[in-house]
Simulated assay, not measured.
Amino acid sequence: MGYYVTVEPGVKLYVEDINPEGSRTIVFLHGWPLSHQQFEYQFNVLPHKGYRCIGIDWRGFGKSDKPSSGYSFDRLSDDIRTVVDALGLEQFTLAGHSTGGAIAVRYMSRHHGYGVSNLVLIDAAAPIGFTAETAARFLTQALNDRPKMMREVTDNFFFQYITSPFSEWFFQLGLQAAGWSTAAIIITLRDEELDADLPKIRVPTLIVHGVHDKVIPFAQAYELNEQIKHSKLVPFHYSGHGLFWEEHDKFNKVLRKFIGSTGK
């Protein structure tokens, strides 16, 4: 089911809650500039295996409200904490892709990993996000020709072949966002770093990353693995930045093994 959670006056986040009766809970944080819908190929499978899957659209993206401000990692992680409190979540797995991974890292640091039993970082934009050069290109496009920017994002996202219909679906996910929030996150990815957050992560952490990732280099996965205690790195050899789709069968199996069985 889908519903909204108010995170501050005038700002509501959309939450997709699938199989609320599941015995283990996974909270998914999407990447920029997408929405919770990017995890369709997890939501198709994991609830039937007994998992409760919660997808949250950050402010400015997907079906959530789109305020003009509030796009720092601090504010975005505070929004997640508000949703966690509103839903009364405990002992859940927090799984973040790309910028969602960066938000998850900040959540673990800023909120002391409140309620989180396991962390999953998927092609995470950490400890750094965009270089100044990449950010400048995306920012110019976002403010002048956002569809062109999203087409470039789509073209560079995947290592494996994607069909034209899939490409169009993915392209449209990115255009659900507001232009101003799309641009604001580019600036956040350019200016904020997460090195100081990493040593504060205390829970078992699974790091998965596509070897052929053109968005966030695979080398950053090694850095995360070195800096996060109790972490395990699993390379995805046939994926770019989209392993949640490119090798979704493998990802779902690795995720289930890491979290633990529900008995189904």
Results as ranks from 00 to 15, higher is better:
154 T>C: 10
204 P>T: 01
8 E>R: 14
212 H>L: 07
104 A>I: 02
31 G>L: 09
126 A>V: 09
212 H>M: 10
124 A>M: 05
101 G>W: 05
145 D>C: 04
206 L>G: 01
177 A>H: 06
263 G>F: 08
262 T>L: 08
108 M>T: 00
184 A>W: 04
131 T>E: 15
86 A>G: 09
248 H>C: 08
7 V>Q: 07
2 G>M: 13
26 I>S: 03
92 F>R: 02
218 F>M: 03
51 Y>C: 12
84 V>H: 03
106 R>E: 15
135 A>C: 13
204 P>R: 00
119 L>C: 02
90 E>I: 03
43 F>K: 15
168 E>C: 01
38 Q>N: 09
111 H>N: 13
81 R>G: 02
233 L>E: 02
168 E>S: 08
151 R>T: 05
197 D>N: 11
222 Y>P: 02
172 Q>F: 02
249 D>M: 03
43 F>E: 10
51 Y>D: 09
191 D>K: 08
87 L>S: 04
233 L>D: 03
156 N>M: 10
67 P>W: 10
46 L>T: 13
135 A>R: 08
13 L>F: 05
203 V>P: 01
61 F>P: 07
185 I>N: 06
174 G>K: 06
85 D>L: 06
25 T>R: 04
98 S>G: 12
174 G>N: 12
149 M>N: 03
200 K>M: 14
54 I>Q: 06
40 E>Q: 13
242 G>L: 03
160 Q>F: 00
248 H>G: 04
62 G>E: 11
13 L>P: 01
91 Q>S: 14
195 D>S: 11
22 G>H: 07
60 G>T: 12
39 F>M: 12
183 A>M: 10
189 L>E: 15
59 R>H: 06
183 A>R: 04
152 E>Y: 05
183 A>S: 14
108 M>I: 01
77 S>T: 07
221 A>H: 02
57 D>Y: 04
150 M>A: 13
91 Q>G: 12
58 W>E: 15
37 Q>G: 06
113 G>A: 12
53 C>Q: 11
251 F>E: 13
153 V>Y: 10
104 A>P: 00
263 G>C: 11
228 I>S: 00
60 G>D: 10
161 Y>E: 15
143 L>W: 00
